[in-house]
């Protein structure tokens, strides 16, 4: 059967579980806080899940918060919170600021 979607992985073969964990980094907490602060008005959990599920498998395989970042930007553009052009401009601006600060 080929109808199983990539994120729907219960029962699939996979390697051993690594039981270690680490504290979330500030930017990872920020990603989560943005979702929570936007709330259901602008970023419903089910909408975000759908945006995550719609990622290509290679993007879905990114680490958790990286995957969230990509899906959130896609969702916000789709919902019209900002345009792709506005996003590209803001990314360039922040990247420049980060480089200057370094």
């Amino acid at each position: 059967m080929t109808d199983r979607r990539y994120h729907d992985m219960g029962g699939e073969p996979a390697g051993p579980v690594d039981p270690s964990t680490h504290e979330a980094e500030p930017w990872q907490k920020l990603i989560t806080a943005l979702r929570n602060a936007l709330g259901d008005d602008y970023c419903r959990v089910d909408e975000l899940r759908r945006a995550l599920e719609d990622l290509r498998p290679e993007d879905y395989d990114l680490p958790y918060f990286e995957r969230w970042a990509v899906a959130m930007v896609n969702l916000f553009c789709e919902k019209g919170l900002f345009s792709r052009a506005e996003w590209d401009a803001k990314m360039a601006e922040v990247r420049r600021k980060v480089q200057e600060a370094a």
Partner: peptide, 9 residues
Amino acid sequence: GHRRTPFYI
């Protein structure tokens, strides 16, 4: 589309 019923069940 988005479904909350896993494939395996």
